[in-house]
Amino acid sequence: MKPIKGFSLKKVRAESAFKRTLVIMALVMIVIAAGIFLTLLVQSLPSIKALGGHYLSGKTWDPVSDIYGALPFLLGTLLTSFLALLISIPFSYAIAIYLGEYNPKGWLSGFLKNIVELVAAVPSVIYGFWALVVLVPMVRAIETKVGAAPYGVGILTASLVLAIMIIPYAASLGRELIRLVPSSLKEGAYSLGATRYEVLKNVTLPYTKSGLFAGLLLSLGRALGETMAVTMVIGNTNILPTSIFSPSNTMASVIANEFTEADRTVYLSALIELGLVLFLVTVVINLVGRMIIKRFTNE
């Protein structure tokens, strides 16, 4: 019996070592997140001290005279992200419903699913390039028709390219969730004489709504942080936008643009504080989203 006992002790040890590894790996994520937050906070202290609350309300970003106001960029980020989300919703939900409910099997479904996933895998600089060459002239044509300044670049162009980039996130998650709806529920509804649309409206969507919302959050998170594609088509202007055709700027693209040549402590620190604000905006939006999901689920 002895060898077996020793063997089992080894097994127990291995088991607990494995568990410990898992816990450590999971905690490392917390450490990294906290580390990023603290680093951002520490590095942006010079700017917080110099500018205080004016940083968030200020409309001027003037590195020459060391005046930093992040409001135009904060607005630019929120405007482009939410506009992109609005544009993407019909597409991502339509794809999710079609692939999850109407055509879950077959070559067309598989092909479509792969294409949607491919769209998520394309590097953002390629989207930026495509937007610059294709979208910008199209938006310029629209601007000429409606009588806006024909820049071609601006909030609308950036939102359009962002919308295309974030469709796969909500679409893929939505498709998976819709397919997970128990068939007994749907069959029950069908047996009561419901049409396909009625089943979708009264069974599938209510059952999956918190998950569908989570997909939107995922998309929004991606839109908030996107840098390269946006920088290429937003116009990079530090002036408060007046319409959706106005050129603007986002926090991520300002950081990417100005970081390499930020040659003074306060300037560098102001850019890092921009990163901190972006970090906090993402956290707040996620928390609010989570609360909404909770309310949905409790109903």
Partner: peptide, 11 residues
């Protein structure tokens, strides 16, 4: 980098 009064920025 300066605070441009007008115009579009390119990287």
């Amino acid at each position: 980098s300066i605070n441009w009064p007008i115009g579009l920025g390119g990287k």
